[in-house]
Design a binder for these strands. Structure first.
Length: 366
DNA sequence: CCCTCGATCAC
DNA sequence: CCTCATATCGAGGG
């Protein structure tokens, strides 16, 4: 029996949340911005509403450029408030949990879900559930979303993508091939700019062409694993299951420096708030870590990292701070350009609880 | 098998 | 002009 997989995507999420909070923004082009505080308007657009998108603005665009495009259009410019969107997202995800068999959040504004067992593979039932999900998000949070339903994650994601905003697209298993074949290959989940241009060089532009491409050719360019994924994705036969949300496995924070430098103390100084933030995240998640990484983004925007892994999990802030500084001292010696941005990451997370829990002293039977 | 690091993706 | 966070993979070294 084919699976019934869904993907839900909250429409232009940050901007829509702002519109709900202040409906007077609705008629105007709106951009939610990440200010880097380097200069007055340095930074990028996080999300734009459709009014702004119609005028050529998109996420990732420098704020200065977006403002130019919106000049004379009475634009609303709002600073991103991540905590606010996080809270809305958490409420929605919690409600979704109760309406599907398995929920796998993949970002603040999107999630995969599985309806196979509750629908018994009946797509008409699946559509009903999807409609009811859309209704409940609208009623509880006044937010529109887009939902795709199909036999695999890749197909479901395409459905939500192609139907947005406020859409619902159901791709029946028997229609999958006709649906996929004519699409541009770069629409597929996992096919970004690099993969896309490599595919183009081999003469592959459509999903249908990718589906029929010789495996040996794909493996040569992308390696065995990714090649197999591409073929399955293009055929709508990727079997990747929807996995119930497993907690985070790393936390990181990156800041843009006020001015370029390679002085490790200056980098550390400007990052110290970020390190405090990481420590708070660890504490509230009840996690310790084994690995710390210092991250440097150089003036040419290339990335350099240096990391250290401890024998046993750590959770004290002194060690975190000291280690970060040392790593930056080492990192700055290895670079020939200044840092533009610096960051810190902790990974290899472990539950603080489990460190001294009874289970650690019980040898698993073999 | 583990660690380190860069690359890629997508947000 | 160029933010920020996370997961995953593969190469290279041990």
């Amino acid at each position: 029996m084919p699976r019934v997989i869904g993907h839900i995507d909250l429409d232009y999420f940050y901007a829509q949340v702002e519109e709900v909070e202040d409906p007077s923004l609705k008629g105007r082009p709106l951009i939610v911005c990440v200010f880097s505080r380097r200069t007055e308007d340095s930074g990028v657009v996080g999300t734009a509403n459709y009014r702004a998108r119609d005028l050529g603005v998109h996420s990732g665009m420098p704020i200065v450029l977006a403002k130019k495009k919106l000049e004379g259009r009475d634009p609303a410019v709002i600073r991103m408030d991540h905590e606010k969107y996080e809270a809305v997202s958490a409420r929605i995800m919690e409600a979704l949990e109760r309406q599907v068999d398995v929920l796998e959040p993949t970002g603040i504004d999107e999630a995969f879900f599985d309806l196979t067992s509750s629908t018994g593979g009946d797509y008409a039932k699946g559509r009903k559930t999807a409609e009811s999900i859309k209704r409940s998000v609208l009623e509880s949070e006044s937010l529109t979303c887009s939902v795709g339903l199909g036999r695999s994650k890749v197909v479901a994601k395409l459905g939500s993508d192609l139907s947005k905003p406020n859409g619902l697209m159901v791709i029946l298993p028997e229609d999958t091939k006709a649906f996929l074949d004519p699409l541009p290959a770069n629409k597929l989940y996992g096919v970004g700019p690099k993969t896309s241009s490599a595919l183009e060089e081999m003469g592959v532009r459509k999903v249908g062409e990718l589906a029929g491409a010789p495996p040996s050719e794909l493996e040569k360019h992308f390696g065995k694993k990714f090649a197999a994924y591409l073929t399955a994705a293009a055929r709508g036969t990727d079997e990747d299951p929807v996995k119930a949300g497993l907690g985070p496995t790393q936390f990181s924070r990156i800041v843009t420096l006020k001015r370029n430098t390679r002085d490790p103390h200056e980098a550390f100084e400007q990052l110290s708030e970020g390190i405090g933030y990481i420590h708070d995240k660890l504490a509230s998640a009840g996690k310790s870590f084994r690995t710390v990484s210092a991250i440097g983004i150089l003036t040419d925007l290339s990335t350099k990292t240096k990391s250290k892994t401890f024998e046993t999990p750590i959770n004290d802030s002194v060690t975190l701070n000291e280690t970060t500084l040392v790593l930056f001292q080492e990192l700055s010696r290895s670079v020939s350009k200044d840092f533009r941005r610096v960051g810190v990451r902790v990974s290899g997370l472990a539950d603080v609880e489990s460190q001294s829990s009874l289970s650690d002293f019980i040898r698993p039977a073999r």
